[in-house]
Design a protein around this nucleic acid. Structure first.
Lengths: 182, 182
DNA sequence: ACCTGAACACCGTTCAAGT
DNA sequence: ACCTGAACACCGTTCAAGT
Protein backbone atom coordinates (compact mmCIF):
# COMPACT_ATOMS: atom_id res chain seq x y z
CA UNK A 1 0.00 0.00 0.00
CA UNK A 2 3.00 2.22 0.59
CA UNK A 3 3.81 2.02 -3.14
CA UNK A 4 0.46 3.66 -3.82
CA UNK A 5 1.51 6.88 -2.18
CA UNK A 6 -0.41 10.04 -2.82
CA UNK A 7 2.09 10.88 -5.56
CA UNK A 8 1.54 7.67 -7.53
CA UNK A 9 -2.17 7.20 -6.87
CA UNK A 10 -4.28 7.17 -10.04
CA UNK A 11 -5.83 10.55 -10.57
CA UNK A 12 -9.19 9.08 -11.55
CA UNK A 13 -10.78 6.50 -9.37
CA UNK A 14 -12.72 5.37 -12.45
CA UNK A 15 -12.20 5.69 -16.19
CA UNK A 16 -14.44 6.42 -19.14
CA UNK A 17 -15.43 2.79 -19.83
CA UNK A 18 -16.49 2.48 -16.21
CA UNK A 19 -18.58 5.63 -16.52
CA UNK A 20 -20.33 4.20 -19.59
CA UNK A 21 -20.78 0.80 -17.92
CA UNK A 22 -22.34 2.44 -14.88
CA UNK A 23 -24.63 4.52 -17.08
CA UNK A 24 -25.56 1.36 -18.92
CA UNK A 25 -26.50 -0.38 -15.70
CA UNK A 26 -28.77 2.52 -14.79
CA UNK A 27 -30.64 2.63 -18.11
CA UNK A 28 -30.95 -1.16 -18.29
CA UNK A 29 -32.51 -1.40 -14.87
CA UNK A 30 -34.38 1.87 -14.44
CA UNK A 31 -34.79 3.33 -17.93
CA UNK A 32 -33.42 6.38 -19.67
CA UNK A 33 -35.23 8.90 -17.51
CA UNK A 34 -33.41 7.54 -14.46
CA UNK A 35 -30.05 8.45 -15.96
CA UNK A 36 -29.06 11.93 -14.87
CA UNK A 37 -25.58 13.32 -14.42
CA UNK A 38 -26.30 13.34 -10.73
CA UNK A 39 -27.65 9.78 -10.48
CA UNK A 40 -24.64 8.59 -12.49
CA UNK A 41 -22.22 10.48 -10.26
CA UNK A 42 -23.85 9.10 -7.15
CA UNK A 43 -23.68 5.55 -8.56
CA UNK A 44 -19.96 6.19 -9.07
CA UNK A 45 -19.69 7.44 -5.51
CA UNK A 46 -18.87 11.05 -6.31
CA UNK A 47 -20.41 14.39 -7.17
CA UNK A 48 -21.82 15.55 -10.53
CA UNK A 49 -18.78 17.66 -11.40
CA UNK A 50 -16.56 14.59 -11.56
CA UNK A 51 -18.55 13.07 -14.41
CA UNK A 52 -17.35 15.94 -16.57
CA UNK A 53 -13.75 14.71 -16.21
CA UNK A 54 -14.67 11.80 -18.48
CA UNK A 55 -17.49 13.07 -20.63
CA UNK A 56 -17.96 16.39 -22.40
CA UNK A 57 -21.63 16.64 -21.53
CA UNK A 58 -24.78 14.56 -21.15
CA UNK A 59 -25.24 14.34 -24.90
CA UNK A 60 -21.83 12.71 -25.33
CA UNK A 61 -22.65 10.27 -22.57
CA UNK A 62 -25.80 9.24 -24.42
CA UNK A 63 -23.86 8.90 -27.66
CA UNK A 64 -21.31 6.60 -25.98
CA UNK A 65 -24.18 4.57 -24.58
CA UNK A 66 -25.75 4.22 -28.04
CA UNK A 67 -22.41 3.31 -29.65
CA UNK A 68 -21.85 0.70 -26.97
CA UNK A 69 -25.26 -0.92 -27.48
CA UNK A 70 -24.90 -0.78 -31.27
CA UNK A 71 -22.12 -3.38 -31.07
CA UNK A 72 -24.66 -5.81 -29.57
CA UNK A 73 -27.14 -5.60 -32.43
CA UNK A 74 -27.65 -8.77 -34.48
CA UNK A 75 -26.11 -9.05 -37.95
CA UNK A 76 -27.93 -10.66 -40.90
CA UNK A 77 -27.33 -14.37 -41.37
CA UNK A 78 -25.35 -14.43 -44.62
CA UNK A 79 -26.16 -18.07 -45.25
CA UNK A 80 -29.83 -17.25 -45.89
CA UNK A 81 -31.21 -16.14 -49.26
CA UNK A 82 -31.69 -12.34 -49.45
CA UNK A 83 -35.39 -12.18 -48.61
CA UNK A 84 -35.25 -14.58 -45.68
CA UNK A 85 -32.07 -12.87 -44.54
CA UNK A 86 -33.89 -9.54 -44.43
CA UNK A 87 -37.03 -10.81 -42.74
CA UNK A 88 -34.95 -12.64 -40.19
CA UNK A 89 -32.54 -9.75 -39.62
CA UNK A 90 -35.17 -7.05 -39.12
CA UNK A 91 -37.22 -9.20 -36.81
CA UNK A 92 -34.08 -9.86 -34.78
CA UNK A 93 -33.42 -6.12 -34.76
CA UNK A 94 -36.96 -5.57 -33.54
CA UNK A 95 -36.36 -7.95 -30.65
CA UNK A 96 -32.98 -6.41 -29.83
CA UNK A 97 -34.45 -2.92 -29.66
CA UNK A 98 -37.53 -4.14 -27.79
CA UNK A 99 -35.16 -5.50 -25.14
CA UNK A 100 -33.44 -2.11 -24.90
CA UNK A 101 -36.28 0.43 -24.85
CA UNK A 102 -33.89 3.17 -23.73
CA UNK A 103 -32.04 2.80 -27.04
CA UNK A 104 -35.23 3.58 -28.94
CA UNK A 105 -35.86 6.53 -26.63
CA UNK A 106 -32.34 7.70 -27.37
CA UNK A 107 -32.74 7.50 -31.14
CA UNK A 108 -36.25 8.99 -31.07
CA UNK A 109 -35.07 11.88 -28.92
CA UNK A 110 -32.74 12.88 -31.75
CA UNK A 111 -29.95 13.50 -29.28
CA UNK A 112 -27.88 10.74 -30.78
CA UNK A 113 -26.68 10.11 -34.30
CA UNK A 114 -27.84 6.61 -35.07
CA UNK A 115 -24.88 4.92 -36.67
CA UNK A 116 -26.21 4.20 -40.13
CA UNK A 117 -22.65 3.58 -41.20
CA UNK A 118 -22.43 0.63 -38.84
CA UNK A 119 -21.92 -2.98 -39.96
CA UNK A 120 -25.60 -3.62 -39.25
CA UNK A 121 -26.65 -0.93 -41.72
CA UNK A 122 -24.11 -2.02 -44.34
CA UNK A 123 -25.09 -5.67 -44.22
CA UNK A 124 -28.80 -4.90 -44.39
CA UNK A 125 -28.29 -2.49 -47.28
CA UNK A 126 -26.33 -5.24 -48.99
CA UNK A 127 -29.18 -7.70 -48.46
CA UNK A 128 -31.59 -5.20 -50.03
CA UNK A 129 -29.20 -4.80 -52.96
CA UNK A 130 -29.04 -8.59 -53.29
CA UNK A 131 -32.81 -8.48 -53.58
CA UNK A 132 -32.40 -6.33 -56.67
CA UNK A 133 -32.99 -2.88 -55.23
CA UNK A 134 -30.90 -0.03 -56.64
CA UNK A 135 -30.44 3.71 -56.17
CA UNK A 136 -33.33 5.66 -54.64
CA UNK A 137 -35.44 2.51 -54.16
CA UNK A 138 -32.65 0.94 -52.14
CA UNK A 139 -32.44 3.92 -49.83
CA UNK A 140 -36.21 4.32 -49.67
CA UNK A 141 -36.54 0.70 -48.61
CA UNK A 142 -33.83 0.94 -45.99
CA UNK A 143 -35.13 4.20 -44.64
CA UNK A 144 -38.70 2.85 -44.50
CA UNK A 145 -37.63 -0.25 -42.62
CA UNK A 146 -35.83 1.95 -40.15
CA UNK A 147 -38.84 4.22 -39.77
CA UNK A 148 -41.18 1.27 -39.33
CA UNK A 149 -38.97 -0.18 -36.60
CA UNK A 150 -38.52 3.13 -34.81
CA UNK A 151 -42.18 4.05 -35.14
CA UNK A 152 -43.46 0.69 -33.97
CA UNK A 153 -41.27 0.62 -30.91
CA UNK A 154 -41.65 4.25 -29.95
CA UNK A 155 -45.45 4.38 -29.98
CA UNK A 156 -46.05 3.30 -26.42
CA UNK A 157 -49.80 3.86 -26.63
CA UNK A 158 -50.65 2.05 -29.85
CA UNK A 159 -54.32 2.11 -28.95
CA UNK A 160 -55.61 4.41 -26.30
CA UNK A 161 -59.26 3.45 -26.32
CA UNK A 162 -60.63 0.61 -24.28
CA UNK A 163 -61.44 -2.74 -25.78
CA UNK A 164 -59.13 -2.91 -28.78
CA UNK A 165 -56.15 -2.17 -26.59
CA UNK A 166 -55.10 -5.77 -26.20
CA UNK A 167 -55.98 -6.82 -29.74
CA UNK A 168 -52.98 -5.32 -31.50
CA UNK A 169 -49.63 -7.06 -31.29
CA UNK A 170 -46.91 -4.58 -32.29
CA UNK A 171 -44.45 -7.32 -33.24
CA UNK A 172 -47.07 -9.02 -35.38
CA UNK A 173 -47.93 -5.76 -37.10
CA UNK A 174 -44.25 -5.09 -37.69
CA UNK A 175 -43.87 -8.53 -39.24
CA UNK A 176 -46.95 -7.98 -41.39
CA UNK A 177 -45.50 -4.72 -42.77
CA UNK A 178 -42.06 -6.24 -43.18
CA UNK A 179 -43.42 -8.87 -45.53
CA UNK A 180 -45.20 -6.23 -47.55
CA UNK A 181 -42.15 -4.01 -47.85
CA UNK A 182 -39.61 -6.60 -48.94
CA UNK B 1 -65.92 50.76 -15.55
CA UNK B 2 -67.67 51.19 -12.23
CA UNK B 3 -69.78 48.11 -13.01
CA UNK B 4 -66.60 46.11 -13.08
CA UNK B 5 -65.94 46.64 -9.43
CA UNK B 6 -63.53 44.43 -7.59
CA UNK B 7 -66.48 42.28 -6.53
CA UNK B 8 -67.63 41.55 -10.10
CA UNK B 9 -64.25 41.45 -11.78
CA UNK B 10 -63.52 38.13 -13.47
CA UNK B 11 -61.31 36.01 -11.24
CA UNK B 12 -59.16 34.88 -14.12
CA UNK B 13 -57.64 37.37 -16.49
CA UNK B 14 -57.45 34.58 -19.05
CA UNK B 15 -59.28 31.29 -19.51
CA UNK B 16 -58.27 27.79 -20.48
CA UNK B 17 -58.67 28.24 -24.27
CA UNK B 18 -56.39 31.27 -24.04
CA UNK B 19 -53.81 29.23 -22.17
CA UNK B 20 -53.89 26.57 -24.88
CA UNK B 21 -53.79 29.19 -27.65
CA UNK B 22 -50.76 30.83 -26.07
CA UNK B 23 -49.06 27.48 -25.67
CA UNK B 24 -49.84 26.75 -29.29
CA UNK B 25 -48.24 30.01 -30.38
CA UNK B 26 -45.07 29.09 -28.49
CA UNK B 27 -44.72 25.58 -29.96
CA UNK B 28 -45.58 26.76 -33.47
CA UNK B 29 -42.93 29.44 -33.46
CA UNK B 30 -40.22 28.08 -31.18
CA UNK B 31 -40.82 24.35 -30.91
CA UNK B 32 -41.85 22.04 -28.11
CA UNK B 33 -38.69 22.51 -26.05
CA UNK B 34 -39.49 26.23 -25.78
CA UNK B 35 -42.76 25.49 -24.01
CA UNK B 36 -42.23 25.44 -20.29
CA UNK B 37 -44.71 26.27 -17.58
CA UNK B 38 -42.62 29.33 -16.92
CA UNK B 39 -42.35 30.51 -20.55
CA UNK B 40 -46.10 30.00 -20.91
CA UNK B 41 -46.81 31.95 -17.73
CA UNK B 42 -44.55 34.76 -18.82
CA UNK B 43 -46.25 34.88 -22.26
CA UNK B 44 -49.52 35.23 -20.33
CA UNK B 45 -48.03 38.00 -18.23
CA UNK B 46 -48.04 36.17 -14.93
CA UNK B 47 -46.10 33.72 -12.78
CA UNK B 48 -45.85 29.93 -13.15
CA UNK B 49 -48.26 29.21 -10.31
CA UNK B 50 -51.14 30.83 -12.20
CA UNK B 51 -50.93 28.34 -15.02
CA UNK B 52 -52.03 25.67 -12.56
CA UNK B 53 -55.38 27.46 -12.13
CA UNK B 54 -56.28 26.31 -15.66
CA UNK B 55 -54.31 23.13 -16.16
CA UNK B 56 -53.67 20.18 -13.85
CA UNK B 57 -50.04 19.83 -14.87
CA UNK B 58 -47.72 20.06 -17.85
CA UNK B 59 -48.85 16.69 -19.17
CA UNK B 60 -52.48 17.89 -19.38
CA UNK B 61 -51.34 21.02 -21.17
CA UNK B 62 -49.60 18.88 -23.78
CA UNK B 63 -52.68 16.69 -24.12
CA UNK B 64 -54.88 19.74 -24.73
CA UNK B 65 -52.37 20.94 -27.31
CA UNK B 66 -52.48 17.57 -29.09
CA UNK B 67 -56.28 17.43 -28.99
CA UNK B 68 -56.43 20.92 -30.43
CA UNK B 69 -54.11 20.10 -33.31
CA UNK B 70 -55.88 16.80 -34.00
CA UNK B 71 -58.94 18.74 -35.16
CA UNK B 72 -56.81 20.26 -37.93
CA UNK B 73 -55.71 16.95 -39.42
CA UNK B 74 -56.96 16.17 -42.95
CA UNK B 75 -59.75 13.63 -43.46
CA UNK B 76 -59.77 11.13 -46.33
CA UNK B 77 -61.53 12.25 -49.50
CA UNK B 78 -64.56 9.93 -49.57
CA UNK B 79 -65.11 10.51 -53.28
CA UNK B 80 -61.90 8.62 -54.14
CA UNK B 81 -61.72 4.84 -54.53
CA UNK B 82 -60.30 3.12 -51.42
CA UNK B 83 -56.68 2.77 -52.50
CA UNK B 84 -56.32 6.29 -53.85
CA UNK B 85 -58.19 7.55 -50.82
CA UNK B 86 -55.63 5.91 -48.54
CA UNK B 87 -52.55 7.01 -50.48
CA UNK B 88 -53.89 10.53 -50.66
CA UNK B 89 -54.97 10.63 -47.01
CA UNK B 90 -51.72 9.33 -45.51
CA UNK B 91 -49.61 11.61 -47.66
CA UNK B 92 -51.76 14.52 -46.50
CA UNK B 93 -51.28 13.34 -42.91
CA UNK B 94 -47.54 13.22 -43.53
CA UNK B 95 -47.60 16.84 -44.68
CA UNK B 96 -49.80 17.92 -41.79
CA UNK B 97 -47.47 16.37 -39.24
CA UNK B 98 -44.38 17.62 -41.05
CA UNK B 99 -45.80 21.13 -40.69
CA UNK B 100 -46.27 20.55 -36.94
CA UNK B 101 -43.04 18.88 -35.79
CA UNK B 102 -43.93 19.51 -32.16
CA UNK B 103 -46.96 17.24 -32.58
CA UNK B 104 -44.69 14.36 -33.61
CA UNK B 105 -42.40 15.14 -30.68
CA UNK B 106 -45.45 15.03 -28.43
CA UNK B 107 -46.64 11.65 -29.71
CA UNK B 108 -43.13 10.17 -29.74
CA UNK B 109 -42.51 11.35 -26.19
CA UNK B 110 -45.39 9.12 -25.11
CA UNK B 111 -46.69 11.85 -22.83
CA UNK B 112 -49.86 12.13 -24.83
CA UNK B 113 -52.48 9.58 -25.79
CA UNK B 114 -52.75 9.86 -29.55
CA UNK B 115 -56.43 9.91 -30.28
CA UNK B 116 -56.84 6.72 -32.29
CA UNK B 117 -60.56 7.02 -31.70
CA UNK B 118 -60.64 10.28 -33.66
CA UNK B 119 -62.54 10.76 -36.93
CA UNK B 120 -59.20 10.61 -38.77
CA UNK B 121 -58.50 7.14 -37.41
CA UNK B 122 -62.05 5.93 -38.03
CA UNK B 123 -62.16 7.12 -41.61
CA UNK B 124 -58.78 5.64 -42.43
CA UNK B 125 -59.69 2.33 -40.81
CA UNK B 126 -62.85 2.39 -42.90
CA UNK B 127 -60.82 2.97 -46.06
CA UNK B 128 -58.63 -0.02 -45.18
CA UNK B 129 -61.76 -2.11 -44.62
CA UNK B 130 -63.09 -0.93 -48.00
CA UNK B 131 -59.86 -2.29 -49.45
CA UNK B 132 -60.86 -5.72 -48.14
CA UNK B 133 -58.80 -5.89 -44.96
CA UNK B 134 -60.40 -7.59 -41.98
CA UNK B 135 -59.57 -8.47 -38.38
CA UNK B 136 -55.90 -8.64 -37.41
CA UNK B 137 -54.74 -7.63 -40.90
CA UNK B 138 -56.82 -4.48 -40.69
CA UNK B 139 -55.26 -3.48 -37.41
CA UNK B 140 -51.78 -4.54 -38.48
CA UNK B 141 -52.10 -2.35 -41.56
CA UNK B 142 -53.36 0.64 -39.63
CA UNK B 143 -50.79 0.26 -36.92
CA UNK B 144 -47.98 -0.10 -39.49
CA UNK B 145 -49.04 3.01 -41.35
CA UNK B 146 -49.04 4.88 -38.07
CA UNK B 147 -45.62 3.54 -37.14
CA UNK B 148 -44.22 4.37 -40.56
CA UNK B 149 -45.48 7.93 -40.31
CA UNK B 150 -44.26 8.43 -36.77
CA UNK B 151 -40.91 6.77 -37.47
CA UNK B 152 -40.26 8.69 -40.66
CA UNK B 153 -41.01 12.03 -39.09
CA UNK B 154 -39.27 11.42 -35.80
CA UNK B 155 -35.93 10.28 -37.17
CA UNK B 156 -34.29 13.64 -37.48
CA UNK B 157 -30.94 12.19 -38.53
CA UNK B 158 -31.95 9.76 -41.25
CA UNK B 159 -28.39 9.52 -42.45
CA UNK B 160 -25.55 10.66 -40.27
CA UNK B 161 -22.66 9.95 -42.56
CA UNK B 162 -21.42 12.45 -45.10
CA UNK B 163 -22.25 12.13 -48.76
CA UNK B 164 -25.52 10.20 -48.73
CA UNK B 165 -27.04 12.68 -46.33
CA UNK B 166 -28.79 14.70 -49.01
CA UNK B 167 -29.74 11.74 -51.18
CA UNK B 168 -32.64 10.46 -49.09
CA UNK B 169 -35.97 12.24 -49.29
CA UNK B 170 -38.06 11.19 -46.26
CA UNK B 171 -41.35 12.04 -47.95
CA UNK B 172 -40.37 10.06 -51.03
CA UNK B 173 -39.38 7.07 -48.91
CA UNK B 174 -42.66 7.34 -47.00
CA UNK B 175 -44.57 7.35 -50.28
CA UNK B 176 -42.55 4.38 -51.54
CA UNK B 177 -43.44 2.36 -48.43
CA UNK B 178 -47.07 3.52 -48.52
CA UNK B 179 -47.53 2.03 -51.98
CA UNK B 180 -46.03 -1.26 -50.84
CA UNK B 181 -48.19 -1.49 -47.73
CA UNK B 182 -51.59 -0.78 -49.32
C1' DA C 1 -62.16 33.42 -2.72
C1' DC C 2 -59.08 33.59 -5.99
C1' DC C 3 -54.37 34.58 -7.45
C1' DT C 4 -49.45 34.26 -7.20
C1' DG C 5 -44.56 35.22 -5.01
C1' DA C 6 -41.57 32.51 -3.06
C1' DA C 7 -39.96 28.22 -1.98
C1' DC C 8 -38.96 23.22 -2.78
C1' DA C 9 -36.78 19.53 -5.01
C1' DC C 10 -35.00 18.61 -9.00
C1' DC C 11 -31.93 19.24 -13.58
C1' DG C 12 -27.19 20.14 -16.54
C1' DT C 13 -23.14 22.65 -16.18
C1' DT C 14 -19.25 25.61 -14.41
C1' DC C 15 -15.64 27.19 -11.58
C1' DA C 16 -13.04 28.38 -7.77
C1' DA C 17 -11.39 26.34 -3.88
C1' DG C 18 -9.28 22.32 -1.88
C1' DT C 19 -6.19 18.32 -1.89
C1' DA D 1 -2.43 18.93 -11.19
C1' DC D 2 -6.37 16.82 -10.66
C1' DC D 3 -10.80 16.48 -8.32
C1' DT D 4 -15.10 18.21 -6.60
C1' DG D 5 -18.24 21.16 -3.28
C1' DA D 6 -20.84 24.72 -4.03
C1' DA D 7 -23.03 27.72 -6.94
C1' DC D 8 -25.62 29.15 -11.18
C1' DA D 9 -29.43 29.15 -14.16
C1' DC D 10 -32.83 26.45 -15.26
C1' DC D 11 -37.14 23.04 -14.62
C1' DG D 12 -42.23 21.38 -12.71
C1' DT D 13 -44.92 21.89 -8.80
C1' DT D 14 -46.80 23.46 -4.21
C1' DC D 15 -48.41 26.36 -0.69
C1' DA D 16 -48.86 30.00 2.32
C1' DA D 17 -49.34 34.67 2.14
C1' DG D 18 -51.55 38.53 -0.11
C1' DT D 19 -55.38 40.85 -2.40
Amino acid sequence: VELLSSRTMPRHLFDRPQVVATARRIVDTDGLEALTVRSLASALGTGPASVYRHVENRRELLQLLADDAATELPLPDESLPPRDRLLDSWLALYDAFAARPWLIDLIASGEVISAHASPVAEKNLQALADLGLRGPDLHAAYSSLNALLLGTLSSRHPYGHGASEATVDPRGAFQWALQKLI
